[in-house]
């Protein structure tokens, strides 16, 4: 599987339609591709390029800028251990050592069974709960080395399957704009006037692109 599936292609079209310009959907579609395959495949990027009307080089150029996108297969669980200041002050190194020891890989590595990829991450916006880590972007706060070992055991045993989906899935609830409620994308090429509820400067309102 590499290109987006028919279902995901339908979803892709729905996402694209929300934006005034199709290219805006590029990052959401890369997420969709990563959710589908666990990482972003070359074929998926070509498909996305077709869908939003840019070159594959532009898709890859945008995609590689953002570190959440993986372009090689990673483990079912991506463990990101924060190492920025607050977490570092509160013992992030100990978490990393525990994880490296338990998994038998260094930061950046993937276990032989393809279950885990371990990354050293930067600030995860949970500084008061330091040290923290994320598994597939689900938090573990004020973690101890023991917590890390337990977490890895639980993940391996499938005890967290309900809470933590495989790598690539972020929110499990997607936005859906009902057709009868949505306004639709406001494209500057089509709309030049003020919105209906603005009356005050309506008389000076012409001249948009």
């Amino acid at each position: 599987m590499a290109r987006l599936t028919p279902d995901n292609t339908t979803l892709a079209h729905e996402i694209i339609a929300r934006y005034p310009k199709p290219k805006s959907a590029l990052i959401p579609l890369l997420h969709l591709a990563q959710e589908q395959d666990g990482y972003v495949t070359d074929e998926a990027m070509r498909h996305i390029a077709e869908l939003v009307g840019v070159t594959p080089a532009e898709v890859r150029g945008t995609g590689t800028f953002y570190e959440m996108f993986q372009f090689e297969p990673v483990g079912r669980y991506l463990i990101n251990i924060c190492g920025t200041m607050s977490c570092a002050l509160m013992g992030a190194d100990d978490l990393m050592h525990a994880a490296e020891e338990t998994l038998g890989v260094h930061a950046g590595g993937t276990t032989d069974d393809g279950m885990f990829t371990l990354h050293r991450a930067e600030c995860q916006a949970a500084c008061t709960e330091a040290p923290c880590l994320q598994v597939n972007y689900r938090y573990r706060f004020r973690a101890t080395p023991d917590d890390v070992r337990t977490l890895i055991d639980d993940l391996r045993a499938g005890r967290l399957d309900g809470e933590i989906p495989p790598h690539g899935t972020l929110a499990r609830t997607r936005q859906h704009i009902p057709a009868d409620r949505g306004v639709g994308a406001v494209d500057p090429d089509d709309v030049a006037g003020p919105p209906a509820w603005v009356t005050v400067d309506a008389d000076t309102s012409q001249g948009a692109s």
Binding site: V54, T55, A57, E58, G61, T64, F65, E67
Partner: peptide
């Protein structure tokens, strides 16, 4: 022809 592009960061 946007066939070359910045990659990575």
């Amino acid at each position: 022809d946007a066939l070359i592009h910045f990659m990575d960061r």
